[in-house]
Computed example of a mutant assay.
Amino acid sequence: MNKWLSSSAMVAALIVSQSAMAASKPTIVLVHGAFAESASWDGVAAKLVKDGYPVVAVANPLRGLKYDSDYVSAVLKSIDGPVVLVGHSYGGSVITDVAVEGTNVKSLVFVAGLAPDNGESAGSLGKKFPTGTLGDALAPPVVQPDGKHDLYILQSKFWKQFAADVPEPQAALMGAEQRPVTAEALNDPSGDPSWKKLPSHFIYGTADKNIPTELHEFMAKRAGAKETVGVKGASHVVMISHPDLVSAMIERAAADK
């Protein structure tokens, strides 16, 4: 009986210790981009959770920049304690546009993410370095009842365009399960950017066909990034093909002062 009590006490102490460790670390809020969904963070989230970080993978609505950023801002305000805010692709535009005032966001991580300045959009940024091939890979828009136009990547082109460094069967599932973004969201102008107020980190794949390397480097330099990592040969979904590198950067951002 005493042995059982001792074991129970040890288990209870371990649970309390793990809870305290999680409470002492910032919450990592992950915002997916267009043509993706929250499961695109699975590898990254698994590593972060294993290392004791609380994680929230937000279901980005992909309906419009203000709508999406307001939605994420509301999620942020519901979280106690410090937050590291992470955005992939168009999700980078969303974390750029969030209202960080009144939240505990301490740093930003752009994962193959867009970082527009005031008045810029995803579309206008693409025109600065027009070597991306996304436009040629899109299916005809699907007109919604509200008049907005949903965009999808053609499934036949999804692997090579979006996720060329993951196995083809996995990319085929990703293409089948992709969530559309409205064309309007990609052309909505950004407001006052959060990266002018907070430290930022950038990681991207050098074989990204959605956002060219030159644009990634331009945005990171303009934001005064604390660090910029180009993963050689990685595609637009660097968080899926290289989750350890991405999670390691997020953990470094969690140490920002």
Rank of each mutant, 00 (worst) to 15 (best):
A59R: 14
K50R: 13
A57Q: 07
S156E: 15
S89N: 09
P26L: 15
G132I: 08
E120C: 12
H201Q: 08
S6E: 12
R252H: 09
P116H: 07
N60A: 06
F110N: 05
A255P: 00
D188V: 11
N2G: 11
D117M: 13
V238P: 05
L108Q: 02
G91E: 08
A34D: 12
G113V: 10
D117F: 14
E214F: 06
S156R: 13
P82D: 13
S24P: 07
A46Y: 08
K209H: 15
K221H: 10
D208M: 09
L48E: 02
T228L: 01
M1T: 12
E120G: 11
A223R: 00
P54E: 08
L151P: 10
T27N: 02
S24H: 11
F202N: 00
D136H: 08
L215T: 07
E214N: 07
K127T: 07
A164V: 07
P212G: 06
K226C: 05
V55R: 00
G33Y: 13
A254D: 01
Q18D: 05
Y204R: 00
G52V: 12
Y152F: 15
A139H: 03
A163H: 01
R252E: 09
A254K: 01
A164D: 12
K157A: 10
D208I: 09
A23R: 12
L198Y: 00
T103K: 03
A23Q: 14
D70C: 07
A253P: 00
E101Y: 11
F158P: 13
A172C: 05
L48A: 03
V100Q: 10
Q170S: 06
S89V: 05
N104G: 10
A112K: 02
M174T: 03
K160D: 15
F158A: 08
E217Y: 00
G224I: 04
A112W: 02
A46H: 11
H149N: 13
D192T: 13
V109R: 00
G43T: 01
G33F: 14
K160A: 12
I211C: 09
S156F: 11
G52A: 12
D208Q: 12
M174W: 08
T96P: 04
I203R: 01
K106C: 06
S8F: 14
A13S: 15
H149G: 05
A13F: 06
K157R: 09
A255E: 10
V49S: 12
F158Y: 15
F129G: 04
V11G: 03
S89G: 13
G191I: 05
V98I: 15
S19A: 14
R222S: 10
V31R: 03
A185H: 11
K106P: 06
D208V: 07
V83M: 04
P141T: 12
A20G: 03
G52H: 15
I15C: 08
S235L: 05
E120D: 14
V86S: 03
